[in-house]
Design a binder for these strands. Structure first.
Lengths: 251, 251
DNA sequence: ACAAAAGTGTTAAACTTACACCCATGG
DNA sequence: CCATGGGTGTAAGTTTAACACTTTTGT
């Protein structure tokens, strides 16, 4: 049964976070050919006795320092962050070195104090998604195309994140364990790239059963009236969903 | 770079259709160990120079006789049927013969005149999903557990189909190129396992832009008033979505 | 004529949207 | 006391849900 031996299997990570009210993706500079010097998604080989989700969790920890409980292949366990399988890419020529099938994972993480302070992550950095995908990039910075088929994987990851915010409470994965409604709104606005009415958003979030739960305390630092703090609630899906405004929809 | 050679890569298919107003899945009897005699999802090895979607399309043709244009890794091209990547399963011990990573695909096909009349499909058959997943199986027939982790893959495929009917026009993939509103409603009721109001369903379907388009003709065979025939419309997503009734929702 | 299924009309409830308005804090 | 953001109220428009009712066929 050695018909199709010789495949190499990797995991690649689309790690998204919100920084400065904009959606950012974690990228690494490739130090060796092929695509030397180009940005790429972080990732690595699946070990011989390792599950796919375990490999993704391990790579995420190596690249970001985030330790996750039983993340992938199970519901996000605890407070912040989220990891899920995205899709698998295996075109015969996608890697010039040989037949490499990559299982892409999507990770949503809170804005980390030390950006990409992992061991492997010598040249890892957060890049604005608009710049990385080369839409209407406002920053004149790193506009270089991504290595391999990573631009396509990134686009799929971003679209998945956009869609999932509609009908799941996953926006909270971008926030610290306790957060305000405004922080949550910033997440939606950054991911969808569209402004939302603060009043209606507040009502919607607090009224949808299981989305958020009051944490008791309030913030004090800001300029205006202090905001209540919330934790993520037990709901797995939002019902009814929070649909993004029509103009930003695909199709 | 031969760190993780030795993976075998397969595609497995969750092929769903509607027969006798119930959701059915295409299964094959395994003729050789392991899991000899058990039901399994159809599938096979990815060829050395074959793309994943191509492998899935090929297997689908071999098992069902369905020829698809540019199905997977592209929008469903033409009239009936649909094929999309579902998820990838690669637990180290999922196959006792070695390290096999399988990329599962979900196919939605119309009720075929000759069930599973393919070449490979010596022992292929349509099995009611309730029986295959062993929920509250009404049929006392084949209740045996599926081989490998196929029960889990099947469950994921069914849940994906249920969710996708909500916000895409994919129900039409279960129908022939021309169909009535009642046929489309049968699809929703079979997949969701819940009755829908025929009047409101009719209005919803015909009012949602791009869901269906009139085909001109009408049916005549049935008992009551003849129904108009429709074709699938150009819409990729339903907006607003057609949400399934609350009691049947997960979470 | 009657049963069966297709399709339209109508109404109340629920939800979204837009925006007026008040609340609480820092400067 | 004023700017800034947090949070509540309210009314108009839209969508859903439930069901009465008419249309068109086979028997």
């Amino acid at each position: 049964m050695a018909i199709s031996d010789g495949f190499q299997v990797t995991v690649d990570l689309v790690v998204l976070t919100i920084r400065d009210r904009a959606l950012h993706v974690l990228l690494v500079r490739r130090r060796y050919p092929p695509y030397r010097g180009r940005w790429a998604l972080p990732g690595g080989f699946v070990l011989p006795n390792e599950d796919l989700g375990t490999a993704a969790t391990r790579e995420l920890a190596e690249e970001t320092g985030i330790e996750a409980a039983g993340w992938a292949d199970a519901g996000t366990g605890g407070s912040a962050g989220h990891l899920e399988q995205l899709a698998t890419y295996g075109a015969p020529r996608r890697d010039p070195r040989g037949r490499v099938v990559t299982v892409a994972y999507l990770a949503l993480v809170p804005d980390l104090p030390s950006p990409a302070a992992g061991s492997d992550a010598a040249a890892a950095d957060w890049v604005e998604v608009t710049a990385a995908t080369g839409q209407q990039g406002r920053a004149a910075s790193s506009r270089a195309a991504l290595a391999f088929d990573h631009a396509s994987i990134l686009a799929d990851g971003v679209e998945r994140a956009r869609a999932k915010l509609e009908y799941t409470p996953l926006a909270a994965a971008f926030c610290p364990p306790e957060f305000t409604v405004a922080q949550l709104r910033d997440v939606y606005e950054a991911v969808w790239g569209a402004p939302l009415d603060p009043r209606n958003f507040h009502r919607k979030v607090t009224a949808t059963a299981g989305f958020v739960e009051p944490a008791g305390a309030s913030t004090g630092g800001g300029r205006g009236r202090p905001a209540q703090l919330f934790r993520r609630g037990p709901a797995e899906v939002l019902y009814p969903p929070l649909l993004r405004p029509a103009p930003a929809r695909p199709g």
